[in-house]
């Protein structure tokens, strides 16, 4: 749908059903972003589950492991490798960081199956156009892209729970977090039905944000200076992973703990575990 929108912006002359819907939507540019308060995250994994359910991620096969499974949202536990009582750990939910500048996956895709929507800033994947070459996966510094190594399969009971707003993906294509695009689409339809030019921020809340019991995730429009997220990222405790690569990710993290912020800035230094056993 990103494509439809951007296309319509450029070609206002063409008329169609999509056009009628789209024209009701504000062409005001948004920059959707997210911030995760790592100090609030207790690693429960509710976001990961909600994400998989919302986006029709198929259940894993028995042989699937952490390296071949599809986990749009994946929670890592990182210890500080200190002895008690200094020992501490942080949970980092990792998913597509929605890079804004020279988005690595967008520039490499040979057939425009990965595109960044100029109106929302969301990096979208078009599974129907994806060749499955996995070049985008090699390009992604966050390892946030997942390949369908097997045919997706749901049991009959699970099929009833599929989200009708999100198309399941076939074997052999790449997928990743898209800030719950099904929900964005629903919010747009609702806005259009109400004759509104702008979607209500309350109508567009990704599943992970909604599901977090500790309200650790804030989501909103970074362009809108009054939004909660625009205020939140101003904190001095805010950081982004690998921001030094210059790709301007739109997912922020926040922690009051200095070691967590330092860890995020670390380069390729070997972890303590590797130092000891490697």
């Amino acid at each position: 749908m990103h494509n439809l929108r951007s296309w319509n912006v450029e070609n206002n002359t063409s008329k169609g059903l999509e056009n009628l819907i789209m024209e009701t939507i504000s062409e005001k540019k948004s920059q959707y972003g997210m911030m995760i308060d790592l100090d609030r995250c207790n690693g429960c994994g509710a976001c990961a589950v909600a994400c998989a359910v919302e986006n029709n991620v198929p259940p894993a096969y028995q042989q699937t492991n952490t390296r071949t499974g599809i986990t749009w949202m994946r929670v890592f536990e990182i210890p500080n490798d200190e002895q008690f009582p200094q020992s501490d750990s942080v949970f980092v939910p990792m998913f597509c960081q929605q890079c804004e500048n020279e988005t690595p996956c967008v520039t490499v895709c040979p057939q425009n199956a990965v595109e960044i929507d100029p109106l929302t800033g969301i990096v979208g994947q078009i599974p129907q156009r994806c060749l499955g070459c996995r070049y985008c996966m090699a390009a992604c510094p966050y390892h946030a892209r997942y390949f369908n190594w097997r045919d997706p399969k749901w049991t009959d009971g699970m099929k009833l729970q599929l989200n009708p707003d999100v198309a399941p993906r076939m074997r052999g294509v790449v997928e990743k977090c898209n800030f719950c695009h099904g929900r964005l689409h629903t919010a747009r339809q609702k806005a259009a039905a109400n004759g509104s030019e702008k979607i209500d921020p309350n109508d567009y809340v990704p599943a992970c944000v909604e599901s977090c019991p500790n309200k650790a995730i804030i989501f909103g429009d970074l362009e809108d200076g009054s939004s909660e997220i625009s205020q939140a990222i101003k904190s001095k405790n805010t950081f982004r992973f690998l921001s030094r690569l210059g790709t301007e990710p739109k997912v922020y993290f926040n922690s009051g703990r200095a070691w967590v912020r330092e860890m995020a800035e670390q380069a390729l230094t070997r972890t303590k575990k590797e130092e000891i056993y490697g």
Binding site: C109, Q111, A113, R129, C130, L131, G132, C133, M170
Partner: peptide
């Protein structure tokens, strides 16, 4: 190696 070899021609249709 690619997941969907039948779509190889897409590169000619939608080249980036």
């Amino acid at each position: 190696d690619v997941g969907q070899p039948l779509r190889a021609w897409f590169t000619f249709w939608h080249p980036n």
